[in-house]
Design a protein around this nucleic acid. Structure first.
Length: 368
DNA sequence: AACACGGGGAG
DNA sequence: CTCCCAGTGTT
């Protein structure tokens, strides 16, 4: 079985992208590395449909790398709120500051320099370099891995480092030395489009694929057999208690979470994960002379973990304020009281945002 | 080399 | 419901 001719694969993907690929996305049609970089970071682990809801608003608020670098981290996190993987936003902010301080505000376009910046790994550096400078480097994200592993009927473990390193070498080998910058942009976009719209995980549209007659997975008759499925980790369920202290004036107590771990750097009510559970919390509330409203647990599913979020709403009076530091989970130096409107402008985890938004609506609609 | 990180879209 | 997506940084 003859392997696909490298130049042939490249040329077909370029031609296919120009004819049938995607062209209208807001981060296309520019060579501004700032806009391309922003889109690539947002697109890490996040699908296009989701990013579309954030991208324009973000570039409007932070029009260039200087504006982003000068903005408080809180504003960046607020604009990112709901996209998840909040470390991306912190690295994005740090990267902007490095570009301003160490590169004179000019966003680099070459792979080697890009690779030194925070939050930019091999694939993102290659994407920016290919789109903005036409550099002959290949991306290798999850979509491209799937396309190539089907093309070559590669049976290796897709998650193994050795597999990915070798795939990258072979991907690089598909790029001809004569490729022009315009070709590189079309090719890079073409690989992304192929993976996203044709060579999909389930139900690939092989009849629309420009590599159909070269694809060994298709030749085998079972293209979805590649890449080899990963072992699935069992998902644990954890119970979290979110203590929402609400004052008479409607203000809520929120505190900033540590920068590492889940919801890092975001604002949230005190979270109790301790195993004392409902019982301990009820006992404490009773001792403190407080009453609380308990909402049914709200499930929050993640890939590898499931959270059962128990909302405990505690009406809080100024008189009780002196005891604030004794509330379980409260770190007084990390928090503050926020009006509903102020709170919704903060960087909030999606479940917290949803809760506060609905609570604000119900308060408004139920008040006289 | 393995793991942690969030939310949503697709089937 | 299950699966995993335009990955990177840390251990």
């Amino acid at each position: 079985m003859t392997p696909p001719e490298p130049t042939e694969v490249f040329a077909r993907v370029v031609a296919w992208q120009r004819r049938a690929g995607r062209h209208g996305l807001p981060w296309q049609g520019t060579r501004d590395p700032y806009r391309v970089w922003l889109s690539e970071i947002m697109l890490q682990q996040t699908q296009v449909a989701t990013v579309l809801r954030y991208y324009e608003r973000f570039v409007t608020r932070f029009a260039n790398v200087q504006a982003l670098a000068a903005a408080p981290l809180d504003e960046v996190l607020a604009a990112w709120s709901g996209l998840g993987y909040y470390r991306r936003a912190r690295l994005l902010h740090r990267c902007a500051q490095v570009v301003v301080q160490q590169h004179g505000g000019r966003f680099p376009c070459d792979f080697a320099t890009l690779r030194t910046l925070p939050g930019i790994g091999d694939s993102t550096a290659a994407a920016i370099a290919a789109f903005c400078a036409g550099e002959r480097v290949s991306i290798l994200d999850g979509n491209v891995r799937r396309v190539l592993m089907r093309l070559w009927a590669d049976d290796r473990d897709p998650a193994a480092v050795a597999t990915q390193r070798d795939l990258w070498t072979r991907a690089q080998g598909l790029v001809p030395a004569t490729a022009t910058p315009a070709d590189m942009a079309a090719y890079t976009q073409g690989l992304m489009d192929l993976g996203a719209t044709v060579c999909t995980r389930l139900r690939p549209r092989c009849d629309a694929c420009p590599l159909l007659d070269r694809c060994q997975a298709h030749r085998a008759g079972t293209p979805t057999a590649w890449p080899r499925p990963r072992a699935r980790a069992p998902r644990r369920t954890e119970r979290w208690w979110l203590l929402l202290l609400r004052r008479d004036d409607g203000a809520c107590w929120l505190q900033r979470r540590a920068s590492g771990g889940i919801w890092g750097g975001l604002w949230a009510p005190p979270v109790l994960t301790a195993p004392q559970g409902d019982q301990g919390l009820r006992a404490w509330l009773q001792r403190a002379g407080l009453t609380a409203t308990w909402a049914p647990p709200q499930p929050h599913a993640l890939t590898h973990r499931e959270l059962a979020l128990h909302w405990v709403v505690v009406p809080w009076t100024d008189a009780a304020g002196a005891a604030l530091a004794h509330v379980p989970g409260v770190q007084a130096d990390q928090g503050a009281w926020w009006s509903p409107a102020e709170a919704l402008a903060l960087g909030l985890p999606a479940p917290v945002r949803g809760w506060l938004a609905s609570a604000a609506v119900s308060r408004t609609s139920s008040s006289r």
